[in-house]
Design a protein around this nucleic acid. Structure first.
Lengths: 331, 331
DNA sequence: TTGTACGCGTTATCAG
DNA sequence: CTGATAACGCGTACAA
């Protein structure tokens, strides 16, 4: 069932069918109705490939993200899909791991699939040395490209991110105000946003006139909860930090479990902050204090910026906002 | 840059370029090299729309699921995407909510996008009255269709599911063996798998020669943790159940929090079972006992069955397995 | 307002 | 082993 069949059954030309189907202008009401009734009766819809061949678009966005098990990214992906769908775009999903070669490969795959735009979800895509981000700028030469939770300068690149530096700065100061003195930050993988967070911690120490030490940023290359607990235990045997800011809520859960197993009173002896305000923050007793980095708003804005660009309008291609401290039971 | 440009630069016809690019047979080594070098120099790749127009495929799978916030589905989606990608398929994602009209709409959208197959992830797609599942059978007339965690009979329909009836039967008997007498099951939404679970609970009561009562299946139409706690409190004021089997781990978390807030000793006074063996089961203290319904295996098998079918082979279109009890701290 | 004819970039067929 | 040409189904100038 193609446009020729419809045109024949409706007794018109394919041009008329096409017009009815698309813009709809310059068609008499009478023929329109006739054509529409045939279309509906036959359940006809245009072949997307043929249409794509002409229009060079299939109204599809490529969403890339690094890690399927990361609750933050999972959440982000769904909101991105949701907003794009609202604008009539479908989402082609691809989990591409942490290695840059894979990322490049899948970006090219998306481009070859003729997506209308590309989203890179998560700051892992952003390399520390800006020259290494040329692969992103290259991609942006072909289609508009959006980065969630990271910033890369360049034409055709939209960025939406939470000011992580500031968020951790505020968090640390909040902990200092509560009386904490040895605040550490713990993370399991370096990324653009982690660099910002560490930098925020440094700033906070400096603003208090307290010397910052390298050991306050604890690299814990582990993802399994029990193993994290062990790691924390080992670290704390080295020096008695009294507050932990975690890279995400899962880490905070592990720290809380460590504290509970050691009968360390939370928050009295140890204050714990999570990050991302995920469902995990509500699952513990006491509930985790955490930072809401407002993913949904970021996703919405990012989609909006890209859709505008896709519609030929131009407007801002950068959106940032402040994280919000959610103070619950662990501080 | 299209196939004509390449053919011109290589001094051959487009047919030869196409042959080099695809099957590659019946091309002399010499011309192949010549063509390949041009292709690589120009960074050429075929236009997917034109290719799709001929082949009527773009190597894309449509994955539909009901709920973005459901950890189980989130997990499933990622594994499905992963396995399809391994076989060279990309995944078009669509979250379509719980209403059947939306589901139908998005299934049709997927079909109109010419996906090669459709996955329905989650048992919510399966209606209780089998006649209402005709919409699934209809879709399966166009492309192979896979159901994760549910069963619908029909041509071209692949199903992969965990035997939930049996899993809950085993779970309840395990709790009976531990000494529980009043075991309830709690859920927030009816679905095919929930029906199975309730039926498993009934079976277990019967196998023990104990009368099953309707009130043992508690409908709690709530998703927010605090609200669930309240709800549980109200229920338990009505009758003092001593074990709860939850529809998922999130519910189990809420029940555990309720118990902790009431100083009810877990598992001594109250035993709690989760379901799905999600990350949440590891986040609580004590860790949740739960049921591993082996999502990854199911996803792998489902993808395998569909890919076989897409390759024209035929083989089994049904795969089921037994859930595994993970006995941890709450029983 | 409507229809004709061409182009989009492939793959497949068939002739050489 | 290679090339010319016909589909594939649609959108759209341009003509009527």
């Amino acid at each position: 069932m193609n446009i020729y069949d419809i045109s024949r059954k409706a007794g018109v030309s394919i041009a008329t069918v096409s017009r009815v189907l698309n813009n709809g202008e310059h068609v008499s009401e009478k023929t329109r109705k006739k054509v529409m009734s045939v279309i509906e009766k036959e359940g006809y819809f245009p072949n997307v490939f043929a249409r794509g061949l002409n229009m060079n678009t299939m109204q599809t966005i490529g969403i890339l993200y690094s890690d399927a098990s990361d609750l933050y990214l999972a959440n982000a992906v769904y909101h991105l899909e949701y907003y794009f769908r609202k604008y009539g775009y479908n989402s082609l999903l691809c989990c591409c791991g942490y290695e840059i070669d894979q990322r490049k490969k899948y970006i090219n795959l998306m481009l070859s699939k003729k997506v209308d735009a590309i989203i890179l979800a998560g700051s892992h895509f952003v390399e520390e040395y800006d020259g290494d981000n040329d692969y992103i700028r290259m991609a942006a030469q072909h289609v508009p490209l959006g980065i969630l939770s990271g910033y890369v300068s360049g034409e055709n690149i939209a960025c939406a991110y939470c000011n992580n530096t500031r968020a951790i700065f505020d968090t640390a100061n909040y902990l200092f105000d509560l009386g904490s003195e040895q605040i550490i930050f713990i993370y399991n993988m370096m990324s653009d946003s982690i660099r910002c967070k560490i930098s925020g911690l440094k700033d906070a120490y400096r603003s208090r006139g307290v010397e910052y030490r390298e050991k306050y940023a604890v690299y814990c290359p582990i993802t399994e909860i029990n193993a994290i607990e062990q790691y924390i235990r080992a670290i704390r045997n080295q020096f008695q930090f009294d507050a932990v800011i975690c890279m995400d809520d899962l880490f905070a859960v592990a720290v809380l479990k460590y504290a509970q197993s050691e009968h360390i009173s939370v928050p009295d002896q140890l204050r714990i902050m999570g990050y991302n305000n995920s469902i995990l923050a509500q699952c513990t007793t006491p509930m985790l204090s955490t930072v809401d980095n407002r993913t949904i708003e970021l996703c919405e804005k990012l989609v909006e910026m890209l859709v505008k660009r896709l519609n030929g309008e131009d407007g801002p291609m950068e959106y940032s906002l402040q994280g919000r401290l959610i103070c619950q039971g662990t501080t």
